[in-house]
């Protein structure tokens, strides 16, 4: 009795992982991006084959100029790739997909709106019921430690607080797919650590599908289920690394040997490519 139910469970588990694999949230097939410029064609991305699975936290890691932001813009529907194709939930990409939340490198909060009204902006654009969403916006702000700042203006807040508000704005409409383009790149190291922990916790609770862009090896390993290493000129996938670290991950996991092995491996690989110098 016990064993049969366990087998059934395992079989079901297996079936589920099969379907999630088959129905990748985002499927990138041989995606390439070539820009025509005065000095000839420039290839930013080349032959990107990648599945973003439903519910996974995937990081694109690479040096600046490796095309990782371009790839994110393609998935967001802001740019059209010049080669290959991108499918969202099995359907070819046609402009910005539904159920999308984006956090940009800069917070892009509007100066003339209060923090609360800034958080509501995306919802206004999508013509949602603002009355119903207001309490949710308040709750999100509270979760990110911004309670009491609802009626302040962006210029009264620190950089970290502003980026928190920008994350709240992306989360307000409860997106299935969250794209984050180096969201913490402009923050100081301590604020960045804080936000890494908060984001990890948030992902743990919501299991959203996240495509995260960073050039910090530590950040990528700390947050991700998988890390996709990209090379530069043109941007190609070097390696995809599964991060088998337990969750929830406290900040101090970064001091463990397992964590160190991942970061060291990535660093060596980038060094081999000539992206990083080891000495």
């Amino acid at each position: 009795m016990m064993s049969t139910s366990a087998t059934a469970l395992r079989r079901q588990d297996h079936a589920m992982s099969q379907t999630t694999d088959a129905a990748a949230y985002v499927r990138m097939a041989d995606v390439g991006m070539t820009y025509a410029s005065a000095r000839g064609a420039f290839t930013a991305l080349d032959g990107i084959d990648l599945d973003l699975r439903r519910g996974e936290f995937l990081s694109l890691l690479g040096p600046s100029g490796c095309g990782k932001s371009t790839l994110l813009k393609c998935v967001a529907g802001l740019e059209r790739c010049t080669a290959g194709r991108i499918d969202i939930l099995g359907r070819p990409m046609d402009g910005p997909p539904e159920g999308l939340g984006v956090v940009f490198q800069r917070d892009i909060l509007l100066d003339w709106r209060t923090i609360l009204d800034n958080v509501l902006l995306t919802a206004e654009f999508q013509r949602r019921d603002l009355k119903a969403l207001r309490p949710r916006a308040q709750a999100l702000l509270a979760r990110f430690g911004l309670d009491g700042f609802e009626n302040r203006h962006p210029w009264e807040l620190s950089g970290g607080m502003r980026q928190r508000a920008a994350i709240c704005r992306a989360l307000l409409v409860d997106p299935d797919l969250l794209l984050m383009d180096e969201p913490f790149g402009a923050l100081d190291a301590m604020t960045r650590d804080d936000l890494n922990v908060e984001l990890a916790r948030l992902w743990q609770d919501t299991r959203k599908t996240v495509l995260f862009i960073t050039h910090s090896i530590t950040e990528a390993v700390f947050l991700s289920d998988r890390v996709v290493m990209l090379s530069r000129n043109p941007g190609r996938i070097v390696e995809v690394i599964d991060i088998d670290l337990p969750r929830p991950r406290p900040l101090r996991i970064r001091e463990t040997p397992e964590f160190g092995r991942y970061t060291a491996r990535i660093r060596h690989r980038f060094a081999e490519l000539g992206v990083l110098k080891e000495e």
């Binding site: 967001a76 802001l78 910005p96 999308l100 509007l110 902006l121 995306t122 999508q126």
Partner: peptide, 10 residues
């Protein structure tokens, strides 16, 4: 970037 934000919000 603000226009991009508007675009991804459709």
């Amino acid at each position: 970037e603000a226009l991009n934000l508007a675009r991804v919000s459709r």
